[in-house]
């Protein structure tokens, strides 16, 4: 019973990791990474509020992140979340796992009013969080992202793969968590091109796909884990010079989860960013 409870908590912890896999940069989509980086020696302060519901489970996360531009094409960052998980077993909250991230833009094509770029993304989620909300593992994510930005239209695509480390549960067994694959497509439209010092608005629409492998406990696959989901995610990006607000909601449109699992109801995210 205790193990079952711990496994459920762990799954919730994984959902928390899902919320934080966004941690996107600058002028990127809300729920998926784009190839944007920071200018050299630039700082980014990022505050994020995320909430999701899945059946009886409700999870919220507040996170702060700091990023630094090592060059005009290379950025590094650190993110620290605080998570709250509510379900029929009660409420758990605490400091989540710290994530270190980096993005390198290896290709850039600039023309008048248009920038086309591609970048690789890497993240390591460390085992630093409180037991109640942390996953208890060190997980690695690798990804590739492409973006086309013009004064009027935007389009992005990305693919990410997360290698989940196995986890021992207090000497009671070993949990092998399924890896995850993320595939994202996004578009953006700027209704009006304003001057540099005026407010700027871009409307976004994303399609976010997620595939998760089954978890296994002591080598035995768990039936009610893993599967795939697709989300349609409208969003908005509002900026004023070096300040940005981004918001969006993920609405599930296709769900093929293994066994008996609640489909995701929604995921919402609000972000604030300052470039210094």
């Amino acid at each position: 019973m205790i193990i079952k409870h711990q496994q459920k908590r762990l799954c919730l912890g994984l959902a928390g990791c899902l919320l934080s896999t966004g941690n996107v940069f600058a002028h990127d989509p809300v729920f998926s990474p784009g190839p944007h980086v920071l200018f050299k020696d630039g700082f980014e302060i990022h505050a994020e509020f995320a909430q999701s519901e899945q059946g009886d489970e409700k999870e919220s996360e507040q996170a702060v992140a700091f990023k630094y531009g090592l060059s005009g094409d290379w950025v590094v960052g650190i993110e620290l979340p605080y998570e709250t998980v509510k379900d029929d077993l009660g409420t758990e909250q605490g400091v989540g796992d710290m994530t270190l991230s980096t993005k390198y833009r290896f290709w850039r094509k600039d023309t008048l009013g248009v920038q086309e770029t591609a970048a690789i993304v890497a993240k390591v989620k460390l085992d630093t969080g409180d037991d109640q909300v942390g996953s208890g593992t060190t997980d690695t994510l690798l990804g590739f992202t492409y973006g086309y930005e013009s004064l009027k239209w935007y389009r992005w695509a990305s693919v990410r793969y997360r290698f989940n480390q196995d986890r021992s549960i207090e000497n009671k067994g070993n949990l092998q968590r399924g890896d995850r694959l993320f595939v994202d497509f996004a578009g953006g439209y700027r209704p009006k091109v304003n001057d540099y010092r005026e407010a700027d608005t871009v409307w976004l629409l994303e399609f976010n796909g997620e595939y998760s492998g089954r978890n296994a406990f002591n080598g035995v696959n768990r039936n009610n884990t893993g599967g795939s989901q697709w989300f349609v995610s409208p969003g908005i990006m509002w900026t004023l010079r070096n300040f940005a607000v981004k918001a969006g909601v993920q609405i599930p449109v296709l769900s093929n989860l293994n066994g008996e699992q609640d489909d995701s109801d929604y995921r919402a995210r609000l972000e604030f960013e300052w470039h210094l």
Partner: peptide, 12 residues
């Protein structure tokens, strides 16, 4: 300059 597609990115 080329690549100027958004004001937020141009802050640098």
């Amino acid at each position: 300059a080329d690549g100027l597609a958004c004001p937020y990115c141009a802050y640098g």
